[in-house]
Amino acid sequence: MLRRPRSRAPDEDQLRPTALRLLAQREHSQQELRAKLSQRGFARAAIDQTIEALCEAGWQSDARYAASYLRARLARGYGLLAITAELRARGVQPNDIHTALTEESPDWHSCAAEQLRRHFGQPLTAELRKKAYRHLIQRGFRHEEAIAALDSLTEDD
């Protein structure tokens, strides 16, 4: 949603309540929160200070954001490569990504197979098998996971 530019800068005493309101709606990475607050016209130094205070108080956590994001993307049928790339693009540090993946420890082969069942749900012809493979690769699954999922779908039928 595009916002009209403000005619004056917002009051700095509104920074913390605005940040908390954003965090109450859903988890945000530090980078996302910084961008949203910056769009609202708050000063960079004040934003950094506020985000640091929110992290110390436990209101904002990139590790918690990574875990939440991972669960949401798994539910939508995305693979490891896509999820990690998206988290990196959102400014989440690799150690937070690794922690989230370790705690969740998804079975990527079964996730890929489930995505195929949901998306195709029928016996796969040779042409449809190629399409299914491309679908899984575009969703961020690795080659081995895509092949295993295709084989499991063929074996079940």
Rank of each mutant, 00 (worst) to 15 (best):
P17H: 02
R21L: 12
A24M: 15
Q25Y: 15
R26K: 07
E27P: 14
E27R: 13
E27H: 12
Q31H: 03
E32N: 15
R34A: 09
R34H: 10
R34Q: 15
K36V: 09
L37S: 08
Q39A: 11
A43Q: 14
A45G: 00
A45S: 07
D48W: 10
A53V: 11
A53R: 08
L54Q: 01
C55E: 08
E56C: 03
G58S: 01
G58T: 07
S61Y: 05
R64Q: 06
R64W: 01
R73V: 08
A75N: 04
G79E: 03
G79C: 07
A85W: 05
A85C: 05
E86R: 07
R90I: 13
V92E: 11
P94H: 02
N95H: 13
I97A: 02
I97H: 05
A100Y: 09
P106H: 06
D107T: 01
A113T: 13
F120C: 11
Q122G: 01
L124K: 05
K130G: 14
K130S: 15
Y133K: 09
H135V: 04
L136Q: 06
F141G: 04
F141M: 06
R142H: 06
H143L: 04
H143G: 13
E144M: 13
E145M: 15
E145F: 14
E145I: 13
A148D: 14
